[in-house]
Design a binder for these strands. Structure first.
Lengths: 231, 231
DNA sequence: CGACCCGTTGACAGAATTCAATGTGTGTGG
DNA sequence: CCACACACATTGAATTCTGTCAACGGGTCG
């Protein structure tokens, strides 16, 4: 059982009525995953609703053709698997830890039960879903960009705005752990194309891959690229 | 004021407690639009929540670059503008009637009020949002396809499965009213590219543009194209 | 008739994919 | 510790796909 104190640290669950907190704390399970470990698998029936407590999670879908398409990268505080809950369908995607990760989860049944017992939380869930919708729309906008370079710029800028940490006078560090293949999948391009763009940008001091993610000395250059002005 | 009978015809609102029905009927407004008329505009503050009763609606966003990106085409029974409701932000997209269209709408305030008074409907709203999430995911999958032809095939097949009407032994009729420019925007390509593909397919008897939408004699051909087998 | 939107076609330049080869680091088994 | 497989990053060259530019036809509306 989770401690109430810990529960309250999760923005999504803070400020709930005490009874609801207790209800949740009793049912939420914490799990830890090493880098590369699966959190859930496409097709699984054992639907759970997850929240990332710490770390980085990749959610993806494998198409019939074998190609993997990445639906999103999730960080602390974000929810996973909201979709499968109400319809009790199989999980429609897989999730894997990109970094050492800790997630909180509860069964879909408990999730729905909570809704029925504590309608006050419905609003919160609805807000989460709306937020997710907006994220997906951003993703679609990114995929709608003209060239691959623009799409990569869009991707990096979006995550930088979301999770970037300012560095003392040296731009932003974006904690995002993607291989070139994963980046390629996200922007719908081939690995080689991504590599060529990233290495060009590396030489031009626009973006650097570092162990912690990406280092962007001057994010305005990327923003300019999105607005068509070449690179 | 809407008649309760009419209200019940909307799947989303059928089977509600009587009080909720009354509450809704009092606040829902029906509006009709001619082809080409705007239903709401990006940036508007007057947030309303809409449901398509009849017709076809295009929801799109205009990027700073002036390019229009289409977020979806909505048909009878589908909801629009769920996103802007809770956060009381401006409408993030515009909507236009592609065909003579009738929509039901209510203010965001009433929508939220309904949630607070009748928590039973929350589940329904959550289900709607989940559904929308799934649609957006499909859209992302489409944009993730390799070539433009594959993306168009994906687009057509998706809408055919959703709204296609079987024709006696002559394939499917998809009621989807898009210009070539709109198709181009949806699949993230240039008009000319779309035209070339569509006219090739027309000659090969794979898809025909008809006044009612698209006629697909044999949808399996399109499905094969999605699975890489050329066209 | 002229303005305008939509669909169409051709030629060409530029972008991205494909194919092939290579380097680098990591972990495993002998 | 070495050999080897394996995952990831990289590069070059050839080919294919798309975007761009330009021009044109048909239809509608005022």
């Amino acid at each position: 059982m989770l401690e109430i104190k810990e529960l309250r640290r999760i923005p999504r669950f803070s400020g709930l009525p005490e009874k609801a907190e207790l209800f949740l704390a009793e049912r939420i399970k914490r799990s830890s995953y090493k880098k590369g470990e699966m959190i859930f698998l496409e097709g699984e029936e054992n639907n759970r609703f997850h929240i990332v407590e710490e770390g980085e999670v990749k959610v993806y879908k494998t198409l019939e053709s074998g190609r993997e398409i990445i639906l999103g990268i999730f960080n602390a505080g974000e929810a996973l698997g909201e979709v499968a809950i109400l319809d009790a369908i199989d999980m429609p995607a897989s999730a894997v830890a990109q970094e050492p990760t800790s997630v909180l989860s509860m069964t879909s049944q408990d999730y729905i039960l909570m809704l029925e017992k504590y309608p006050e939380v419905a609003m919160r869930i609805i807000r989460d879903l709306s937020l997710r919708l907006r994220t997906l729309r951003k993703h679609i906008e990114m995929l709608g960009e003209n060239g691959i370079a623009t799409r990569i710029a869009h991707l990096l800028v979006t995550y930088a705005r979301q999770n970037g940490r300012q560095i003392n006078g040296d731009g932003v560090l974006v904690p995002l752990h993607l291989t070139r293949a994963e980046m390629a999948s996200m922007v719908s391009a081939r690995i080689e194309t991504v590599i060529r763009i990233m290495s060009r940008w590396h030489k031009k001091n626009i973006v650097h891959s570092v162990p912690e993610g990406f280092h962007i000395p001057n994010i305005q250059i990327l923003e300019a690229i999105i607005h068509q002005e070449e690179d």
